[in-house]
Amino acid sequence: MGRFFLRRLGQAAVAIFGVTTLVFFIQRLTGDPTLLLVPETATKADIEAMRHTLGLDRPLLVQYVGFLWDMLRFDLGRSFIQNVSVATIIGARLPYTLALAAGALFVAFAIGVPVGVVLAIRRGKLSSGGLMGMVLAAQSMPTFWSGILLIMIFAVWLGWLPPSGPGGFGHLIMPSVALGLLSMATFARITRTSILDELSKDYVRSARARGVPTRRLVFRHLLRNASIPVVSIAAIEISHLLAGAVVVETVFAWPGLGLLTIQSIVSRDFLVVQAIVLLGAFVTIGLNFLADILYSIIDPRIRLDGGPS
């Protein structure tokens, strides 16, 4: 276990290095990253000056090492547009996105997993058909459209909730639901699929033959075995939530990192965009790491350490 842990930690470090490299090269897809950093009104002389100031006229390898060194020191740079350090800009917005992601995850998990269990156990029954329809409907809703509909219904017509903007708990409800719906559907489907897979195995048949009641079968046997895919999906799903926040925050004018991303693209504040992408990546790597550790605890059969079987 200890060896596996260290090994996996090393892999996470490699992933962080890889993502940083990926972002460095994406910056240079068009050949000259300077153009991403200057305002649209910049003259040719401005661009030259900027290129020199930033050291973008140095050899690529030198730039790359410099970039890695900056990232290693958590130096995300300074926004040219706002003339504030990127870390400060992100720090101010981060709590909003965390609150939104937590709300959405709660909506997704609290509804999704029980729904998935019911769907699997009552498969083929009418009630499960109706529930599946709702799950698929939730999954097929574009978040920006469900967001707009929520605003139409609960803010414009009923006047129950504030339409958009930052604020207290009331302001968080609609964005959380809009963001959580898609993940809810994913949790429900994955839970359903993996429980169905478990149901067709020998041990379930023997348990049934021994007269184990369905409830006990589900809670004692199925959920543990079926939770493997659910756990790994949960890690990926949180990163979907962070990404989905871009759209949902735009719809609801929720001042988190998602809205900041779009604002920064519009105002050509590329360093902020890059920092948010890297942050999202590092968070996701951490979550995947956790998921794999949980994976190996729940199911020791899975030998991720690469030994021959």
Binding site: G18, S239, A243, G244, V246, V277, G280, A281, T284, I285
Partner: peptide
């Protein structure tokens, strides 16, 4: 892992 580390929408 590297690709999945970056949320696809962000990438």
């Amino acid at each position: 892992d590297i690709f999945l580390s970056v949320p696809a929408v962000l990438l």
